Computed example of a mutant assay.
Amino acid sequence: MTLPAGLPMPVPDPDLPRRVRVHEVGPRDGLQNEKGVVPTEVKAEFIRRLAAAGLDTIEATSFVHPKWVPQLADAEALFPLVRDVGARLPVLVPNERGLDRALALGAREIAVFGSATESFAKANLNRTVDESLAMFEPVVARAKAAGARVRGYLSMCFGDPWEGAVPVGRVAATGRRLFDLGCDELSLGDTIGVATPGHVGALLRAFDAEGVPAGRLAVHFHDTYGQALSNTLAALRHGVTTVDASAGGLGGCPYAKSATGNLATEDLVWMLDGLGITTGVDLGHLTATSVWMAGHLGRPSPSRTVRAISHQES
Rank of each mutant, 00 (worst) to 15 (best):
P4N: 02
P12S: 05
P17S: 04
R21F: 03
P27E: 13
D29T: 04
L31G: 03
N33L: 02
V37R: 14
I47D: 07
I47E: 08
R48H: 10
A52I: 00
D56N: 14
I58L: 05
Q71P: 04
D74P: 03
L78K: 10
P80T: 09
V82M: 08
V85I: 04
A87F: 08
N95T: 08
A104W: 12
G106S: 11
G106A: 11
R108Y: 03
V112H: 09
F120A: 07
A123V: 05
N124H: 13
R127M: 15
V129I: 15
S132C: 15
M135D: 14
V140H: 11
K144C: 09
G147N: 12
F158A: 13
F158T: 11
P161G: 13
V166P: 09
T174N: 13
R176I: 00
R177C: 02
D184T: 03
E185W: 12
L186C: 01
L188I: 03
D190C: 07
G193T: 04
G198W: 09
L204G: 05
A206K: 11
E210V: 01
E210D: 10
V212G: 05
A218L: 12
A218K: 11
H220A: 12
F221G: 12
H222S: 14
L233R: 14
L236T: 05
T242H: 14
G248C: 03
C253D: 05
K257G: 10
W270D: 00
L275I: 00
G276C: 00
G280F: 00
G284L: 02
T289G: 07
L297W: 05
S301C: 06
S303H: 10
T305A: 05
V306F: 06
Q312K: 12
Q312A: 14
E313I: 03
